[in-house]
Design a protein around this nucleic acid. Structure first.
Length: 638
RNA sequence: GCCGGCGUAGCUCAGUCGGCAGAGCGGCUGAUUCGUAAUCAGCAGGUCAGGGGUUCGAAUCCCCUCGCCGGCUCCA
């Protein structure tokens, strides 16, 4: 029998050789699991025919996923030992670790988690062999009925197969497709991260189970590194930095989810807005301002009342008319478009606005700036003829990448959400228009050389869309740009333009946001830069630090000249030592510190210290201004 | 909204068994006049989230409300 490997080499082994033996023969001491002709397989499995084999380690995403899946079983085993009456639901691996949903009959407390973690360590150290066992379906049902494992029985109902696989380690059995690690001893480091309520099958009408989260590694040093990454994320938390750097606050007296942009945060926002304005002006957008409320009838016509009402703030009544606070800007932009006859000559009409909308978000989901009830979208709506879609999408992709590059986001992922061909009736609008539009989106992506993933069935009911995700400095993925075609609203509002043929035509509408919402983007940006904004965004760009009181007048003069040159400058005139002033400026993450004493006052110079590069030495004030202005204008990312 | 954990000075946090409300940082005042990450001293600052209850007595125990945190569901 011949076993082939990815590198082209081959190994001859007798039929029935286990994968573990093959691994040993190949010196694959790190192997956790194998891919046999692409199928993930236990190392304990025997090879019965020629096959191509690849061994997976923890470093391989699939290997890691198996490692965490087995860790989830270990967690369940520990819980079952500590709480014999607990009923198991499901326990999958996730992006960062694993969880297990368990009905324990009571909430788990921190001490319980401590005990579970300790028990997991003991069970891992016991190095139990993990064994795959296949049982007839009836036998599996019988076992679970006896044990009263109602969730497992429900899962079993959904499995049509006559034989069901189980994994066993000592006395602990769990129904599972597998594969799994060969033994628990490979799990050398374990941490139970927390627990929370989670609905059975994700359905809020059903039982609430306890979801216990954990993470594990083959090497304790990896756990240590992981915990340090968590600590780094805590250090960058925008809620913490927002307070420390006086950027924003959310006050109980005002209301949850309602953001107060403090002066220092407002500066950053203004820079972001100005940058976007420049970019959009260059691309033929027209700016509009629209109200925050509108008559109920407008929301009826747009359809929001029927499908978005649960997310809307309740209405206000004025002179017997009901008004609702806007959860979206589109009806207003549509009203601008529809305010007069439109000719094909003026298409595409691109209407842009930093529009603040209000959405009712359930209290439990609010999270700093990332999830709020007041959302300022960098919104725009493009009204165009169907044949213009492709060019418009190209322009939007170009815009999105250019803008995000300026903020230091370079790696991305793109999904193209299309109709599900199986359920064409789920979608509104003409199937032919859909066809053409989907083709146009795809053509645009290819023309721009953008790598993307097709997601059939993920389209909105009103049109296909493109979502762009960017990765921040910590490697976390954020959906920022979204471009959505809409065939429904032009219909509902009867939008038209007069064509070359002097007859009315229906425009296509594109909803698009580049940054998403300014609140959320600001939160992401704070964490991305850990509060140390590049010069062009920094709330305070330069701080002048006089050495002693007698230098105060010169310091003020320097500050004023910086301001006259368009730089955001402050001076620190406190009767403190320079070291203290430097420290405070560093803590506030001010990019440039200018130390001025006798030598500088005499020569009209400044001694420049950069936040990260350190002491840059003395230079004429004018030279510094030139340098700083160039850095601002180029929007250098560092 | 649901499950769990929290809420003490502007911030970070002590506060034992139910027995006088604390520290550091920050702020203010004064002294110091200093050359690239913290000078010294003094002072002010509290409805212990809010309300109700138990008790001779509540920051501490119980109940309700509000808010925050970690998740679930949802999502820009």
């Amino acid at each position: 029998m011949v076993v082939r490997f990815a590198d082209g080499s081959e190994l001859r082994v007798p039929r029935g050789t286990t994968l573990a033996e093959v691994a040993r023969a190949r010196g694959e001491s790190q192997a956790l699991v194998a891919l046999v002709d692409g199928v993930p397989t236990d190392l304990s499995a025997r090879l019965e025919r020629d096959a191509t084999v690849r061994f997976l380690r923890f470093e391989d995403p699939q290997g890691r996923s198996v490692f965490w899946h087995s860790s989830a079983h270990l967690l369940a085993q520990a819980v079952k030992e500590l709480f014999p009456h607990a009923k198991l639901a499901i326990g999958p691996p996730i992006e960062d670790g694993f969880y297990y949903d368990i009905d324990v009959g009571r909430p788990l407390e921190p001490e319980d988690l401590q005990r579970i973690e300790e028990r997991m360590r003991e069970l891992a150290a016991r190095d139990q062999t993990i064994e795959r066992v296949e049982l007839p379906r009836a036998e599996a049902v019988r076992r679970y009925q006896e044990a009263g494992e109602r969730y497992k029985l429900e899962l079993l109902e959904a499995i049509p197969d006559e034989r069901v696989s189980f994994y066993r380690q000592d006395g602990f059995w769990d129904m599972c497709r597998g594969p799994h690690l060969p033994r628990t001893g490979l799990i050398r480091a374990v941490k139970v991260l927390g627990s929370s309520g989670a609905y059975w099958r994700g359905d809020e009408r059903r039982e609430m189970l306890q979801r216990v989260y954990g993470i594990s590694f083959p090497d304790p040093a990896q756990l240590e590194a992981y915990l340090q990454r968590l600590e780094e994320a805590r250090r960058r938390d925008h809620r913490r930095l927002g307070r420390e750097l006086d950027l924003f606050s959310i006050e109980e007296s005002v209301g949850p989810g309602l953001v107060l942009w403090h002066p220092r945060g407002a500066v950053v926002r203004r820079c972001i807005e100005e940058f976007l304005r420049e970019e959009l002006d260059r691309r033929g957008y027209a700016w509009v301002y629209t109200p925050h409320v509108a008559r109920e009838a407008l929301w009826e016509q747009s359809g929001h009342l029927s499908w978005y009402r649960d997310n809307m703030f309740s209405g206000i009544e004025i002179e017997g008319q009901r008004y609702l606070v806007k959860p979206m800007n589109c009806p207003f932009h549509i009203a601008v478009y529809a305010s007069r006859t439109r000719s094909y000559r003026e298409l595409p009409v691109r209407l842009a606005e930093f529009g603040t909308v209000y959405r009712y978000e359930r209290s439990g989901v609010l999270h700093g700036l990332l999830r709020v009830r007041m959302i300022t979208q960098d919104d725009a709506h493009i009204f165009c003829a169907p044949h213009q879609i492709e060019d418009e999408i190209c322009g939007l992709l170009d815009l999105a990448f250019r803008v995000h590059r300026a903020f230091g986001f370079s790696s991305y992922e793109v999904t193209l959400s299309l109709r599900d061909p199986a359920t064409p009736d789920k979608y509104a609008g003409d199937p032919e228009v859909w066809e053409r539009a989907e083709a146009a989106l795809e053509a645009a992506l290819r023309r721009e050389g953008v790598a993307y993933t097709r997601a059939p069935g993920e389209a909105n009911f009103y049109g296909p869309k493109i979502d762009v995700y960017f990765f921040d400095a910590l490697g976390r993925k954020w959906q920022l740009t979204t471009v959505q075609l809409d065939f429904v609203l032009p219909e509902r509002f009867g939008l038209e333009y007069v064509g070359e043929d002097n007859r009315p035509h229906r425009p296509v509408m594109v909803h698009r946001a580049i940054l998403g919402s300014l609140e959320r983007f600001f939160g992401i940006l704070i964490e991305h830069y850990a509060g140390a904004f590049p010069l062009w965004l920094a709330p305070e760009q330069v701080r002048v630090l006089p050495v002693a009181d007698r230098h105060a007048a010169y310091a003020q003069d320097v500050r004023d000249r910086l301001r006259a040159a368009g730089l955001r400058a402050e001076s620190d005139l406190r009767a403190e030592k320079v070291t203290k002033k430097v420290r405070d400026a560093q803590v506030w993450k001010v990019p440039y510190m200018l130390v001025v004493g006798d030598r500088e006052a005499e020569g009209g110079t400044v001694s420049v210290r950069h936040r990260t590069a350190g002491d840059l030495g003395p230079m004429p004030l004018e030279a510094f201004i030139q340098r700083a202005r160039a850095e601002v204008t180029s929007r250098t990312a560092s």
